[in-house]
């Protein structure tokens, strides 16, 4: 199951729990008696919530994409530059417009399971660089002008990956697509 679907399921469970709680309280609104031990219940509620937050932070904070495979040496560098409304993807550095037009529209091929370092930048506005496999978003990084964002990634499946722009970059944003082949 993809991360997205796990998050969705978790969300739906929380959704149902919250609805259930509110609904039960709503049902109880006609009865008499009033709530008992409010202060104690509030304290318990707070500490459970506080503990949950700490737990989740402890589990999830180490799992960030910033230092992904930082300890290993990449075996392939891939340079990506975005420009309204196309990507240039190349194993050479792309430093200027000539480099860009040489690589734009060219599909490169990389190896499955090899560590690739994507060096992602933009020549004009902010774009997004995202890797889709069979319609599932696997990884992404922003392509911001003036910065080269380095994303290290290992493709676990062979076949064609789709690259979509994920940051609104103007009228043809939806059509900004490229491909990369994995063998």
């Amino acid at each position: 199951m993809t991360i997205q679907k796990e998050v969705f399921l978790f969300f739906i469970v929380m959704f149902l729990i919250i609805v259930l709680v509110f609904f039960l309280v709503f049902q109880a609104s006609g009865k008499s008696g009033g709530a008992q031990n409010v202060n104690r219940k509030r304290a318990i509620f707070f500490f459970i919530a506080f503990g949950t937050v700490l737990l989740v932070l402890g589990i999830t904070l180490p799992k960030t994409p910033y230092r992904l495979f930082a300890a290993e040496e990449p075996t392939q560098k891939v340079f990506v530059v975005a420009r309204q409304f196309s990507f240039a993807i190349s194993k050479f550095p792309i430093a200027n417009d000539d480099d860009f037009s040489m690589s734009a529209g060219v599909e490169i091929t990389v190896q499955k399971d090899e560590l690739i370092e994507f060096n992602v930048s933009s020549f004009d506005v902010s774009h997004g660089f995202s890797l889709y496999k069979d319609g599932v978003l696997k990884a992404q990084v922003q392509a911001m002008p003036g910065y080269v964002n380095r994303l290290r990634w290992k493709f676990s499946e062979s076949g064609t990956y789709d690259i979509l722009c994920l940051e609104y970059c103007g009228m043809a944003h939806a059509a900004m697509i490229a491909k990369i082949n994995v063998e």
Partner: peptide
């Protein structure tokens, strides 16, 4: 610039090309 960047760090997730 690229060469200097390469020799001065092992792995930085980003480097700058600000104009």
């Amino acid at each position: 610039n690229r060469l200097f960047r390469e020799i001065t760090h092992e792995f930085v997730p980003v480097y700058s090309t600000l104009g």
